[in-house]
Write a protein that binds this DNA or RNA. Structure first.
Lengths: 180, 180
DNA sequence: ACAACGACTAAACAGTTGTTCAATACTCTG
DNA sequence: CAGAGTATTGAACAACTGTTTAGTCGTTGT
Protein backbone atom coordinates (compact mmCIF):
# COMPACT_ATOMS: atom_id res chain seq x y z
CA UNK A 1 0.00 0.00 0.00
CA UNK A 2 1.73 3.05 -1.17
CA UNK A 3 -0.33 6.15 -1.64
CA UNK A 4 -1.78 7.24 -4.91
CA UNK A 5 0.89 5.82 -7.18
CA UNK A 6 0.32 2.45 -5.56
CA UNK A 7 -3.42 2.55 -6.16
CA UNK A 8 -4.47 1.63 -9.68
CA UNK A 9 -7.49 3.01 -11.46
CA UNK A 10 -8.61 -0.56 -11.94
CA UNK A 11 -8.56 -1.17 -8.19
CA UNK A 12 -10.63 1.95 -7.56
CA UNK A 13 -13.11 0.99 -10.25
CA UNK A 14 -13.36 -2.55 -8.95
CA UNK A 15 -14.06 -1.33 -5.42
CA UNK A 16 -16.74 0.93 -6.81
CA UNK A 17 -18.22 -1.91 -8.85
CA UNK A 18 -17.76 -0.20 -12.19
CA UNK A 19 -15.41 -0.44 -15.13
CA UNK A 20 -12.07 1.36 -15.23
CA UNK A 21 -13.20 3.22 -18.34
CA UNK A 22 -16.08 4.79 -16.46
CA UNK A 23 -14.00 6.46 -13.79
CA UNK A 24 -11.77 7.94 -16.48
CA UNK A 25 -14.86 9.05 -18.38
CA UNK A 26 -16.11 10.91 -15.32
CA UNK A 27 -12.89 12.39 -13.98
CA UNK A 28 -10.92 12.76 -17.18
CA UNK A 29 -7.87 10.99 -15.87
CA UNK A 30 -6.41 9.43 -12.77
CA UNK A 31 -5.10 12.81 -11.76
CA UNK A 32 -8.57 14.25 -12.23
CA UNK A 33 -9.88 11.64 -9.82
CA UNK A 34 -7.23 12.62 -7.34
CA UNK A 35 -8.20 16.26 -7.63
CA UNK A 36 -11.86 15.39 -7.15
CA UNK A 37 -11.03 13.40 -4.02
CA UNK A 38 -8.96 16.29 -2.73
CA UNK A 39 -11.81 18.72 -3.21
CA UNK A 40 -14.30 16.41 -1.56
CA UNK A 41 -12.15 15.75 1.49
CA UNK A 42 -11.05 19.33 1.90
CA UNK A 43 -14.60 20.57 1.70
CA UNK A 44 -15.68 17.97 4.21
CA UNK A 45 -13.04 19.20 6.62
CA UNK A 46 -13.70 22.86 5.97
CA UNK A 47 -17.43 22.47 6.43
CA UNK A 48 -16.91 21.02 9.90
CA UNK A 49 -14.87 23.95 11.04
CA UNK A 50 -15.94 26.99 12.95
CA UNK A 51 -13.64 29.95 13.44
CA UNK A 52 -14.64 30.23 17.08
CA UNK A 53 -13.62 26.73 18.13
CA UNK A 54 -10.27 25.11 18.68
CA UNK A 55 -8.97 23.46 15.53
CA UNK A 56 -7.96 20.47 17.61
CA UNK A 57 -11.47 19.24 18.07
CA UNK A 58 -12.37 19.69 14.44
CA UNK A 59 -9.58 17.59 13.12
CA UNK A 60 -10.02 14.95 15.76
CA UNK A 61 -13.70 14.44 15.16
CA UNK A 62 -13.82 14.46 11.37
CA UNK A 63 -14.90 11.23 9.74
CA UNK A 64 -12.03 8.79 9.94
CA UNK A 65 -11.65 7.79 6.26
CA UNK A 66 -11.56 11.47 5.43
CA UNK A 67 -8.78 11.99 7.93
CA UNK A 68 -6.68 9.19 6.56
CA UNK A 69 -7.03 10.61 3.08
CA UNK A 70 -6.07 14.04 4.34
CA UNK A 71 -2.91 12.57 5.79
CA UNK A 72 -1.98 11.02 2.48
CA UNK A 73 -2.76 14.18 0.56
CA UNK A 74 -0.61 16.25 2.89
CA UNK A 75 2.27 13.85 2.49
CA UNK A 76 2.02 13.62 -1.27
CA UNK A 77 2.14 17.41 -1.25
CA UNK A 78 -1.04 17.82 -3.22
CA UNK A 79 -1.73 21.37 -4.31
CA UNK A 80 -5.14 21.31 -2.68
CA UNK A 81 -3.76 19.90 0.55
CA UNK A 82 -1.10 22.57 0.58
CA UNK A 83 -3.77 25.23 0.28
CA UNK A 84 -5.69 23.68 3.15
CA UNK A 85 -2.60 23.58 5.31
CA UNK A 86 -1.92 27.25 4.66
CA UNK A 87 -5.54 28.02 5.37
CA UNK A 88 -5.49 26.23 8.72
CA UNK A 89 -2.22 27.86 9.70
CA UNK A 90 -3.53 31.30 8.97
CA UNK A 91 -6.75 30.72 10.83
CA UNK A 92 -4.76 29.33 13.75
CA UNK A 93 -2.49 32.36 13.71
CA UNK A 94 -5.49 34.68 13.97
CA UNK A 95 -6.99 32.50 16.67
CA UNK A 96 -3.78 32.62 18.70
CA UNK A 97 -3.42 36.35 18.14
CA UNK A 98 -6.90 36.75 19.54
CA UNK A 99 -5.87 34.56 22.44
CA UNK A 100 -2.89 36.79 23.09
CA UNK A 101 -5.02 39.93 23.14
CA UNK A 102 -7.60 38.24 25.32
CA UNK A 103 -4.91 37.08 27.66
CA UNK A 104 -5.36 33.32 27.50
CA UNK A 105 -2.49 32.61 25.08
CA UNK A 106 1.14 33.37 25.81
CA UNK A 107 2.99 35.81 23.57
CA UNK A 108 5.35 34.32 21.00
CA UNK A 109 8.63 35.56 19.61
CA UNK A 110 7.70 34.33 16.13
CA UNK A 111 3.96 34.07 15.72
CA UNK A 112 4.09 32.58 12.24
CA UNK A 113 6.56 29.88 13.22
CA UNK A 114 4.49 29.16 16.29
CA UNK A 115 1.25 28.62 14.41
CA UNK A 116 2.96 26.49 11.76
CA UNK A 117 4.47 24.35 14.49
CA UNK A 118 1.22 24.16 16.38
CA UNK A 119 -0.71 22.99 13.34
CA UNK A 120 2.02 20.48 12.55
CA UNK A 121 1.68 19.14 16.06
CA UNK A 122 -2.05 18.77 15.69
CA UNK A 123 -1.61 16.81 12.50
CA UNK A 124 1.27 14.67 13.73
CA UNK A 125 -0.74 11.89 15.39
CA UNK A 126 -2.86 11.75 12.27
CA UNK A 127 0.11 11.32 9.97
CA UNK A 128 1.75 8.80 12.26
CA UNK A 129 -1.54 7.07 12.95
CA UNK A 130 -0.22 3.58 12.38
CA UNK A 131 2.69 3.97 14.75
CA UNK A 132 0.79 5.89 17.37
CA UNK A 133 -1.95 3.32 17.36
CA UNK A 134 0.51 0.49 17.72
CA UNK A 135 1.99 2.02 20.86
CA UNK A 136 -1.17 3.38 22.39
CA UNK A 137 -3.26 0.35 21.56
CA UNK A 138 -6.20 0.19 19.23
CA UNK A 139 -6.99 1.98 16.03
CA UNK A 140 -5.51 5.49 16.21
CA UNK A 141 -8.53 6.79 14.34
CA UNK A 142 -10.79 5.49 17.05
CA UNK A 143 -11.75 7.94 19.74
CA UNK A 144 -10.28 6.35 22.88
CA UNK A 145 -6.79 6.08 21.43
CA UNK A 146 -6.85 9.55 19.94
CA UNK A 147 -8.10 10.97 23.21
CA UNK A 148 -5.16 9.62 25.15
CA UNK A 149 -2.72 11.41 22.90
CA UNK A 150 -4.83 14.54 22.76
CA UNK A 151 -4.99 14.88 26.52
CA UNK A 152 -1.26 14.33 26.85
CA UNK A 153 -0.72 17.01 24.24
CA UNK A 154 -3.04 19.46 25.90
CA UNK A 155 -1.29 18.96 29.21
CA UNK A 156 2.02 19.86 27.61
CA UNK A 157 0.49 22.90 25.98
CA UNK A 158 -1.04 24.25 29.18
CA UNK A 159 1.49 23.43 31.89
CA UNK A 160 4.48 23.06 29.61
CA UNK A 161 6.71 20.03 29.53
CA UNK A 162 9.85 21.45 31.10
CA UNK A 163 9.82 23.24 34.45
CA UNK A 164 12.70 25.57 33.61
CA UNK A 165 14.17 26.94 30.40
CA UNK A 166 17.28 24.78 30.36
CA UNK A 167 16.51 23.32 26.94
CA UNK A 168 15.52 26.64 25.52
CA UNK A 169 18.79 28.21 26.60
CA UNK A 170 20.71 25.16 25.46
CA UNK A 171 19.05 25.52 22.09
CA UNK A 172 19.86 29.21 21.96
CA UNK A 173 23.49 28.34 22.71
CA UNK A 174 23.63 25.89 19.81
CA UNK A 175 22.01 28.47 17.59
CA UNK A 176 24.55 31.09 18.64
CA UNK A 177 27.44 28.75 18.06
CA UNK A 178 26.35 27.66 14.58
CA UNK A 179 25.62 31.19 13.40
CA UNK A 180 29.04 32.41 14.37
CA UNK B 1 6.46 11.59 -6.99
CA UNK B 2 4.75 9.14 -4.81
CA UNK B 3 6.84 7.19 -2.38
CA UNK B 4 8.27 3.80 -3.09
CA UNK B 5 5.53 2.54 -5.35
CA UNK B 6 6.04 5.60 -7.51
CA UNK B 7 9.77 5.03 -7.81
CA UNK B 8 10.75 2.43 -10.37
CA UNK B 9 13.78 0.22 -10.13
CA UNK B 10 14.82 1.59 -13.50
CA UNK B 11 14.80 5.14 -12.14
CA UNK B 12 16.96 4.14 -9.20
CA UNK B 13 19.38 2.29 -11.45
CA UNK B 14 19.54 5.19 -13.88
CA UNK B 15 20.32 7.66 -11.10
CA UNK B 16 23.02 5.33 -9.88
CA UNK B 17 24.40 4.98 -13.40
CA UNK B 18 23.94 1.24 -13.53
CA UNK B 19 21.59 -1.23 -15.15
CA UNK B 20 18.28 -2.20 -13.54
CA UNK B 21 19.41 -5.79 -13.47
CA UNK B 22 22.37 -4.93 -11.26
CA UNK B 23 20.34 -3.49 -8.43
CA UNK B 24 18.16 -6.59 -8.46
CA UNK B 25 21.28 -8.73 -8.54
CA UNK B 26 22.58 -7.00 -5.44
CA UNK B 27 19.42 -6.62 -3.40
CA UNK B 28 17.41 -9.58 -4.60
CA UNK B 29 14.33 -7.58 -5.41
CA UNK B 30 12.86 -4.12 -5.20
CA UNK B 31 11.63 -4.90 -1.72
CA UNK B 32 15.12 -6.02 -0.79
CA UNK B 33 16.40 -2.64 -1.90
CA UNK B 34 13.80 -0.99 0.24
CA UNK B 35 14.85 -3.03 3.25
CA UNK B 36 18.50 -2.19 2.63
CA UNK B 37 17.65 1.52 2.47
CA UNK B 38 15.67 1.21 5.68
CA UNK B 39 18.56 -0.41 7.47
CA UNK B 40 21.02 2.16 6.21
CA UNK B 41 18.93 5.14 7.18
CA UNK B 42 17.92 3.74 10.53
CA UNK B 43 21.48 2.93 11.42
CA UNK B 44 22.56 6.40 10.34
CA UNK B 45 19.99 7.90 12.66
CA UNK B 46 20.72 5.53 15.52
CA UNK B 47 24.46 6.10 15.29
CA UNK B 48 24.00 9.82 15.71
CA UNK B 49 22.06 9.41 18.90
CA UNK B 50 23.26 9.54 22.45
CA UNK B 51 21.02 8.56 25.33
CA UNK B 52 22.11 11.60 27.32
CA UNK B 53 21.09 14.23 24.79
CA UNK B 54 17.74 15.56 23.75
CA UNK B 55 16.29 13.64 20.83
CA UNK B 56 15.29 16.93 19.27
CA UNK B 57 18.81 17.84 18.30
CA UNK B 58 19.57 14.42 16.88
CA UNK B 59 16.71 14.39 14.49
CA UNK B 60 17.23 17.99 13.49
CA UNK B 61 20.85 17.60 12.63
CA UNK B 62 20.85 14.29 10.80
CA UNK B 63 21.82 14.43 7.15
CA UNK B 64 18.90 15.87 5.24
CA UNK B 65 18.38 13.16 2.58
CA UNK B 66 18.35 10.64 5.37
CA UNK B 67 15.65 12.61 7.14
CA UNK B 68 13.47 12.80 4.08
CA UNK B 69 13.76 9.08 3.60
CA UNK B 70 12.89 8.51 7.24
CA UNK B 71 9.74 10.52 6.76
CA UNK B 72 8.69 8.39 3.82
CA UNK B 73 9.50 5.17 5.62
CA UNK B 74 7.44 6.23 8.62
CA UNK B 75 4.51 7.08 6.40
CA UNK B 76 4.66 3.90 4.38
CA UNK B 77 4.62 2.08 7.72
CA UNK B 78 7.75 0.10 7.02
CA UNK B 79 8.48 -2.59 9.57
CA UNK B 80 11.93 -1.16 10.21
CA UNK B 81 10.59 2.37 10.58
CA UNK B 82 7.98 1.14 13.01
CA UNK B 83 10.70 -0.45 15.11
CA UNK B 84 12.65 2.78 15.10
CA UNK B 85 9.61 4.76 16.15
CA UNK B 86 8.99 2.42 19.05
CA UNK B 87 12.64 2.62 19.96
CA UNK B 88 12.65 6.40 20.01
CA UNK B 89 9.46 6.53 22.02
CA UNK B 90 10.81 4.20 24.64
CA UNK B 91 14.06 6.05 24.92
CA UNK B 92 12.13 9.30 25.20
CA UNK B 93 9.93 7.84 27.89
CA UNK B 94 12.97 6.90 29.95
CA UNK B 95 14.51 10.28 29.31
CA UNK B 96 11.37 12.05 30.50
CA UNK B 97 11.07 9.75 33.52
CA UNK B 98 14.59 10.71 34.42
CA UNK B 99 13.61 14.34 33.95
CA UNK B 100 10.70 13.86 36.31
CA UNK B 101 12.88 12.35 39.00
CA UNK B 102 15.49 15.04 38.51
CA UNK B 103 12.86 17.68 38.70
CA UNK B 104 13.21 19.36 35.32
CA UNK B 105 10.27 17.63 33.63
CA UNK B 106 6.69 17.98 34.77
CA UNK B 107 4.83 14.87 35.85
CA UNK B 108 2.35 13.40 33.38
CA UNK B 109 -0.95 11.64 33.90
CA UNK B 110 -0.16 9.17 31.11
CA UNK B 111 3.57 8.87 30.58
CA UNK B 112 3.30 6.55 27.59
CA UNK B 113 0.82 8.75 25.77
CA UNK B 114 2.97 11.76 26.57
CA UNK B 115 6.14 10.34 25.06
CA UNK B 116 4.31 9.08 21.99
CA UNK B 117 2.83 12.52 21.49
CA UNK B 118 6.14 14.22 22.15
CA UNK B 119 7.95 12.09 19.58
CA UNK B 120 5.15 12.67 17.09
CA UNK B 121 5.58 16.38 17.61
CA UNK B 122 9.30 16.17 16.99
CA UNK B 123 8.71 14.34 13.74
CA UNK B 124 5.83 16.49 12.57
CA UNK B 125 7.85 19.28 10.88
CA UNK B 126 9.87 16.58 9.18
CA UNK B 127 6.83 14.83 7.77
CA UNK B 128 5.22 18.08 6.73
CA UNK B 129 8.49 19.46 5.46
CA UNK B 130 7.10 20.69 2.18
CA UNK B 131 4.27 22.60 3.74
CA UNK B 132 6.28 23.95 6.64
CA UNK B 133 8.98 25.13 4.30
CA UNK B 134 6.48 26.87 2.08
CA UNK B 135 5.11 28.88 4.99
CA UNK B 136 8.37 29.52 6.82
CA UNK B 137 10.35 30.21 3.70
CA UNK B 138 13.21 28.21 2.33
CA UNK B 139 13.94 24.54 2.32
CA UNK B 140 12.51 22.98 5.51
CA UNK B 141 15.50 20.67 5.67
CA UNK B 142 17.83 23.62 5.77
CA UNK B 143 18.88 24.74 9.18
CA UNK B 144 17.51 28.30 9.37
CA UNK B 145 13.97 27.24 8.53
CA UNK B 146 14.04 24.25 10.85
CA UNK B 147 15.42 26.40 13.63
CA UNK B 148 12.52 28.82 13.47
CA UNK B 149 10.04 26.04 14.04
CA UNK B 150 12.19 24.34 16.63
CA UNK B 151 12.49 27.48 18.74
CA UNK B 152 8.77 28.09 18.54
CA UNK B 153 8.19 24.53 19.64
CA UNK B 154 10.59 24.74 22.53
CA UNK B 155 8.95 27.90 23.74
CA UNK B 156 5.62 26.14 23.84
CA UNK B 157 7.14 23.20 25.68
CA UNK B 158 8.78 25.33 28.36
CA UNK B 159 6.33 28.12 29.04
CA UNK B 160 3.28 26.36 27.69
CA UNK B 161 0.99 27.79 25.06
CA UNK B 162 -2.07 28.55 27.16
CA UNK B 163 -1.90 30.60 30.36
CA UNK B 164 -4.76 28.79 32.07
CA UNK B 165 -6.30 25.35 31.76
CA UNK B 166 -9.45 26.42 29.95
CA UNK B 167 -8.81 24.13 26.98
CA UNK B 168 -7.82 21.25 29.19
CA UNK B 169 -11.02 21.51 31.19
CA UNK B 170 -13.03 22.02 28.00
CA UNK B 171 -11.47 18.87 26.65
CA UNK B 172 -12.23 16.98 29.85
CA UNK B 173 -15.83 18.14 29.55
CA UNK B 174 -16.11 16.79 26.02
CA UNK B 175 -14.53 13.58 27.15
CA UNK B 176 -16.98 13.28 30.01
CA UNK B 177 -19.95 13.95 27.76
CA UNK B 178 -18.96 11.42 25.09
CA UNK B 179 -18.24 8.67 27.60
CA UNK B 180 -21.62 8.99 29.27
C1' DA C 1 47.91 -19.58 -17.99
C1' DC C 2 43.67 -21.29 -16.35
C1' DA C 3 39.76 -21.66 -13.72
C1' DA C 4 36.60 -19.56 -10.66
C1' DC C 5 34.03 -15.83 -9.23
C1' DG C 6 31.93 -11.44 -8.74
C1' DA C 7 30.39 -7.22 -11.12
C1' DC C 8 27.74 -5.95 -14.71
C1' DT C 9 24.69 -5.80 -18.83
C1' DA C 10 21.35 -6.26 -23.00
C1' DA C 11 17.45 -8.42 -24.16
C1' DA C 12 13.48 -10.44 -23.31
C1' DC C 13 9.63 -12.09 -20.12
C1' DA C 14 4.83 -11.76 -18.53
C1' DG C 15 2.02 -8.73 -16.13
C1' DT C 16 0.16 -4.15 -15.02
C1' DT C 17 -0.27 0.59 -15.83
C1' DG C 18 -3.31 4.80 -17.59
C1' DT C 19 -5.89 5.78 -21.42
C1' DT C 20 -8.65 5.41 -25.88
C1' DC C 21 -12.24 3.78 -28.97
C1' DA C 22 -16.26 1.95 -30.73
C1' DA C 23 -20.34 0.23 -29.30
C1' DT C 24 -24.33 -0.74 -26.28
C1' DA C 25 -27.86 0.42 -22.84
C1' DC C 26 -30.42 3.84 -20.61
C1' DT C 27 -33.06 8.02 -19.67
C1' DC C 28 -34.86 11.82 -20.56
C1' DT C 29 -37.04 15.83 -24.10
C1' DG C 30 -39.82 16.88 -27.92
C1' DC D 1 -42.39 7.09 -30.86
C1' DA D 2 -38.03 9.52 -32.50
C1' DG D 3 -33.95 11.39 -31.08
C1' DA D 4 -30.48 13.58 -28.36
C1' DG D 5 -27.51 12.91 -24.70
C1' DT D 6 -25.52 10.48 -20.98
C1' DA D 7 -24.02 6.30 -18.50
C1' DT D 8 -21.52 2.32 -19.10
C1' DT D 9 -18.85 -1.27 -21.04
C1' DG D 10 -15.27 -4.73 -23.25
C1' DA D 11 -11.48 -4.73 -25.89
C1' DA D 12 -7.48 -2.98 -27.33
C1' DC D 13 -3.47 0.34 -27.06
C1' DA D 14 1.33 1.59 -26.10
C1' DA D 15 4.11 2.33 -22.29
C1' DC D 16 5.92 0.81 -18.22
C1' DT D 17 6.41 -2.45 -14.23
C1' DG D 18 9.61 -6.00 -11.55
C1' DT D 19 12.12 -9.86 -12.69
C1' DT D 20 14.77 -13.54 -15.30
C1' DT D 21 18.07 -15.37 -18.28
C1' DA D 22 22.10 -15.85 -20.75
C1' DG D 23 26.10 -13.90 -21.34
C1' DT D 24 30.36 -10.67 -21.23
C1' DC D 25 33.92 -8.40 -18.83
C1' DG D 26 37.54 -7.82 -15.39
C1' DT D 27 39.67 -9.39 -11.31
C1' DT D 28 41.76 -12.73 -8.28
C1' DG D 29 43.64 -16.98 -6.55
C1' DT D 30 46.45 -20.95 -7.85
Amino acid sequence: MDGIAGTSVRAVASDAGVSPALVVHHFGSKDGLRAACDDYVLDAIRSGSDAATDALGEVLHAATPVRRYLARALLDDTAAAGALFTEIVERTEQWLAQGESEGWARPASDTRARSVTYVSWLLAPLLLGDHVGRLLGGDPAETPTAVRGARAGLEMLTDGLFVDDRWLTAFAAVEERSSR
